[in-house]
């Protein structure tokens, strides 16, 4: 396949269509070979288990009971890697063990990882997780099923979702589709696509019937790519180095010349 035909992929998570069945969670575990969770009762609101993403859960459906007046509503949300267009995690990684592929997935290469967790620290969505109890820990997060995409398959979660809450396709089509849904059913959706602009855009676009903060999403993120924050400084590394070195060199040269003139050679003891 020539690279020019590679069209980046995007996933729509349409929470208005989600029925909280969690087929996607089971499919994700199945495809990624993740062990079960040892749980007791429920760790979150409603039937939610586990409470947060972790090394064994790359995908989490959240249960949000929202009561307006006497009217209860049950709204489901989803947490998974957003596969940012400008991934903070990858930009923070000192070894490029975390990187973004042409098709969109931000993936992790175990063989390069030093386990510094800068990626975890950097992610504005608090997504990457770590094997805290392992001798040779790995970083864990949704892979966008990169291994499936490579062979032309859709992600496991998108394949099993019964209601079409998860839709997967080419970036352009998906963005259009997300906008179309909001435009055609303004009563169903809030007019916002989470992920379209957040941190410079992501590969997962979430839609919702209620404001995203009500279903536990991290909101108020900048619209600019996160890596810009560090780039500001890092891109000047080389010039700063050169300038500083020169300045220090010059100062040192002046100082030494003056000292030689004054005729003493430093105070080495």
């Amino acid at each position: 396949m020539s690279t020019s035909t590679v069209k980046p992929k995007v996933m729509i998570q349409d929470n208005t269509r989600c029925i909280g069945c969690r087929a996607c969670m089971v499919a994700c575990k199945s495809w990624n070979d993740r062990p079960e969770d040892k749980t007791d009762f429920f760790a979150g609101a409603g039937y939610q288990n586990p409470r947060d993403l972790d090394a064994n859960n790359y995908n989490l459906i959240t249960f949000n009971e929202i009561v307006t007046g006497a009217k209860p509503d049950w709204v489901f949300g989803r947490q998974l890697c957003m596969h940012c267009e400008h991934p903070a995690c990858a930009s923070a990684c000192p070894t490029t063990a975390m990187f973004k592929t042409d098709l969109g997935p931000v993936v992790f290469d175990e063989s390069r990882c030093i386990g510094c967790r800068a990626c975890m620290q950097a992610c504005p969505f608090i997504i990457p997780k770590y094997d805290y109890d392992s001798f040779a820990p790995k970083i864990h997060k949704c892979t966008f099923c990169a291994d499936r995409l490579e062979v032309g398959m859709d992600p496991a979660c998108a394949t099993v979702c019964p209601t079409g809450a998860i839709t997967f396709g080419d970036r352009d089509d998906m963005v259009t589709e997300a906008k179309r849904r909001i435009a055609t059913a303004p009563g169903t959706y809030i007019p916002e696509i989470y992920g379209l602009e957040e941190v410079g855009g992501t590969s997962v676009l979430h839609l919702s019937s209620v404001p995203f903060e009500q279903i536990g999403y991290i909101t108020g993120l900048p619209k600019t790519p996160m890596p810009d924050l560090t780039h500001r400084w890092l891109r000047v590394t080389a010039p700063v180095f050169a300038v500083l070195y020169a300045v220090f060199g010059a100062l040192n040269w002046i100082v030494r010349r003056r000292m030689r003139r004054q005729g003493h050679d430093g105070e080495h003891t």
Partner: peptide, 12 residues
């Protein structure tokens, strides 16, 4: 089925 058992483990 461990995956399902982990989602809803306890009678309630």
């Amino acid at each position: 089925m461990p995956w399902l058992a982990g989602l809803v483990p306890s009678a309630f």
